[in-house]
Design a protein around this nucleic acid. Structure first.
Lengths: 217, 217
DNA sequence: GGTGATAAGATGGTATACCATAATACCGAA
DNA sequence: TTCGGTATTATGGTATACCATCTTATCACC
């Protein structure tokens, strides 16, 4: 693994974990010190993150962590809705016994993470569950797209998962997705995932608007 | 505009125009000579294109122009189908008189390009038409996604447009999309764009499989 | 004549030096 | 005291030098 890959992962993780606030300037030389790499590496990493949409470049100012308003977040949730609904549908059509087993394991992990309350575990378990759905449905490109979009709303997702683990309706809804796939019921799978995402988007909206109104006062 | 931006545009254009074949190695130093910039610029540009999916990095080999098989292309067409259908639908719902006028102008451009037979003009006019649709529907993020995906199948699109201008059924289908939007008929707009894309995907498949079987012999 | 090893060249990875520009702070004059 | 200008510094943009590694070709030995 190259230095760039490591730097990329670290920075992505730092942004997603909220270690950098949205709008923060990413000054190159301090980043070099923090990551222990040269500017070349940092700059190439930033270019990659820029293309990913996690970082914006202000002309003659340099890179900042991309800002996220509800306008864009909402659009991202809508796109995810389309792609994930389609994936869940196809997944329910195609899932064989082996696939269901794999999904079942991911669900078990998810349950564990929900009960433990570790937001990080929850994040990973959720990601894995979705990854399997896209894998089984054979839509690796769509999964790429979703992952990239998720990067841009990662802070929102973390916040959403953080609140959702309290009232664990979230887990129930995911279980519903699983059982629809398990019984090879495409319609139900699509409906279940749609419901889940709508709920997630609502929570996200509440949290984000609350945050914005707070920061304005 | 920075050197990087110019280099980026040039390289993207070169890849899209087929100046580089898919699978070709992108050797850094020759690229520096061709673009008249330093390696730093070339490397950062390549990072960006890598994130865009236009370029792949082979470990210890360096960057190559991303290969495109029908498997992936098909997935891209499917994703476009979802996003563009949704956009056309919303567009037909929301389009005001001013929007329709703008779209109408783009359509006129498109007609001109069809009759001139210039693949390049056709490419640009088509892009503009779609851009307006996404703009009017207020889905700028989805447009970003579509553009990025289009980059990866740009060669296919150019080939498709190249053949389609002969039998101009393509233009008729686009006209149908326009008139559906013009009459604010979301259902018809969705159906029309779906038909158009299906057709495009079919042509693309034919061309691509023909090309692959030819290169194998 | 074939196979393997070694050396040379090419290529990507990394680090650093230099330059242009924009923001800021300080000083002087009104 | 305030406004404006100049100088300094911080930062991004660009270029280049150096190093590690992989590939390939040639030569020697079997």
């Amino acid at each position: 693994m190259t230095l760039r890959d490591m730097a990329l992962e670290k920075m992505r993780a730092a942004i997603i974990a909220g270690h950098f606030q949205s709008g923060d300037r990413l000054v190159e030389r301090p980043l070099c010190d923090q990551l222990g790499v040269s500017r070349s590496v940092v700059r190439e990493t930033i270019r990659y993150l820029e293309a990913e949409g996690l970082v914006e470049i202000l002309p003659n100012k340099g890179p900042i962590v991309a800002k996220l308003d509800w306008e864009n977040a909402q659009q991202i949730y809508e796109i995810r809705m389309l792609l994930e609904t389609s994936a869940a549908q196809k997944c329910a059509e195609l899932a064989k016994d082996g696939d269901k087993k794999k999904l079942g394991k991911a669900l078990a992990q998810l349950k564990l993470a929900y009960s433990s309350g570790e937001t990080n575990d929850l994040f990973e378990a959720t990601t894995l569950f979705y990854q399997y759905i896209f894998e089984i449905s054979g839509q690796n490109v769509a999964w790429e797209v979703v992952q990239r979009l998720n990067g841009r709303i990662s802070r929102l997702r973390a916040m959403t998962l953080g609140t959702r683990d309290r009232h664990d309706a979230g887990y129930k809804r995911i279980e519903k997705i699983f059982s629809a796939i398990d019984t090879n019921d495409p319609q139900a799978a699509a409906a279940a995932i749609q419901l889940h995402l709508t709920e997630a988007a609502n929570i996200a909206k509440t949290l984000l608007t609350a945050e914005l109104s707070k920061s304005e006062k």
